[in-house]
């Protein structure tokens, strides 16, 4: 019936008997050997207490200051570095005499004149100029298409030339607008709209992060 239950044999007590042996007195010697090994290590040259003496020294009061040093070193490097020199913080720029006294009244007078003038430009001049610009652009755009297709025209012009043209035109627009008397205000207004819309946007949505266009690359 052993076929029916092959594991039954493993339950026989005599199978658990340890069949391995050691030489006589082995465990007694083992303890001694281990102890001896450790002791001899200590008793070699390096075991000498004299050698363990610390020959290095520190300046007086060094450890009292160490903590302080570490804390200050973890602060911004300016504290210890060249930039920690207070003289560097001196403002080297100056202004003409009484500059700030006159600045105040100058701004106030500009603010007063601007508040009266601006709406006029916004309503009449600005719209008239904008309309004229649109008309001229429409005329310019519609003319060449009668003779040649746009792609025919553009294929003859190098990319570089197009970029140069666009950059030049932008510069010319600025020049033109700023050189025409009275249009300064319009230009200012355009720039104002461009640059200050963030302040409104920010007020509406404080969480909005306005990105400056920086020079750095």
């Amino acid at each position: 019936m052993s076929d029916e239950n092959p594991y039954k044999k493993l339950k026989a007590p005599h199978l658990k008997k340890n069949i391995f042996e050691t030489p006589e007195g082995y465990f007694g010697d083992l303890k001694e050997k281990i102890t001896l090994g450790v002791v001899t290590e200590d008793e070699r040259i390096l075991g000498s207490e004299q050698l363990k003496k610390n020959i290095f020294d520190v300046p007086d009061g060094y450890f009292d200051k160490l903590n302080e040093k570490i804390i200050s070193a973890t602060k911004l490097t300016e504290e210890e570095g060249i930039l920690g020199n207070e003289a560097l913080k001196k403002n080297i720029y100056s202004t003409p005499e009484n500059y700030f006294e006159s600045l105040n009244s100058e701004i106030l007078s500009k603010v007063k004149s601007e508040t009266k003038v601006i709406p006029l430009y916004q309503t009449t001049w600005f719209r008239a100029v904008a309309a004229a610009v649109v008309l001229i652009m429409v005329a310019l755009l519609s003319m060449p298409t009668k003779q040649l297709s746009e792609s025919d025209l553009l294929s003859e012009v190098s990319d570089e030339a197009i970029i140069n043209y666009l950059e030049e035109r932008q510069a010319i627009e600025y020049e033109l607008l700023s050189s025409v008397e009275g249009l300064d205000a319009i230009l200012d207004n355009m720039i104002l709209e461009e640059t200050s819309s963030y302040s409104f946007a920010l007020n509406e949505n404080p969480e909005l992060d306005y990105d400056f266009e920086y020079f750095d690359h």
């Binding site: 600045l103 100058e106 701004i107 500009k110 200012d188 104002l192 200050s196 409104f200 007020n203």
Partner: peptide, 21 residues
């Protein structure tokens, strides 16, 4: 000097809409 004046003129024009966010 030019820029500072522009800055404060802009402040003047936009301060109405400033909501102290």
């Amino acid at each position: 000097d030019d820029v500072v004046q522009d800055v404060f003129i802009k402040v003047f024009k936009n301060l109405d809409g400033f909501r102290e966010a």
